[in-house]
Amino acid sequence: MNWALTLWRLASFAVAAGLIALWQLIANLKLVSPVFLPGPDRAWAALMRGFSNGTLLDKTIGTLEHMFYGWLVASVVGIALGAMIGSSRAMRSYVAPSLEFLRPLPVSAIIPVAIALFGLTQGMALFVIAFGAIWPMLLATVHGFGAVEPRLYEVARSLHMSRLAVIFKIALPSASPDIISGMRLSLTVSLILAVVCEILAGLDGLGHWVLLSARAFRSADLFAGVILLGVIGYVTALAMSMIEQRLLRWRTSGH
């Protein structure tokens, strides 16, 4: 088993290395103009330069902040609202259909509304990111709370558990696999929307950096920004699945 895993890891590294080599080759042969496509060497140099003078670090922190605050608001509101809707059968059957109707509404449609309400501000970004990221979480929580084993509620009744205890000791842990997978989806959505908002509102962050670099034909800086966005997406997803594994140990543990 472990051997196979190691082999897979090696293979995926080889693929990544091969792609980077191909990229370098294309750049060196100038198949695409260097104005648009820097080689990995130049992108790497731009990355180092950006970090040594601190600008890229600031932008990265800016994007992380936008993403994280929006995601946090979405999580708190989404889980609380989802718990309320999901734990009552009546609420589920009345509210869930309208949620399903609202969900496919592209977030881009509410960006003008948000701009009209908040202007080109951090508040607008927070609103848009939270609004976009709330759906996966809300729907997952509603589903999770609705799918709690009824037998466990009977155990709770027989023990005379308080309403609060039922929520925190039974419903929430039971819904946690759904909630966590919703949170993971939302994290990706948050990153995308953080970049969109930075571009639209000129907020300090990697989105804005990428836009400015593109306008100034600084393709190496542009690629450095894009690479950083990729890394943020990858690392946060990885962190999330590690948290997930830790929290959901009881589910994977077999015989």
């Binding site: 155990v155 009744r157 842990p173 946690s176 009881w250 589910r251």
Partner: peptide, 29 residues
């Protein structure tokens, strides 16, 4: 209503235990 001094052992034990709690945790409930 159900009483605390009347305990019920369900046939489907798999559904009546908290899967996210250990044996000790289930008794602790």
């Amino acid at each position: 209503a159900p009483r605390r001094d009347v305990a019920i052992v369900f046939q489907d034990y798999g559904k009546a235990l908290l899967p996210w709690r250990t044996a000790a945790g289930n008794v602790a409930l």
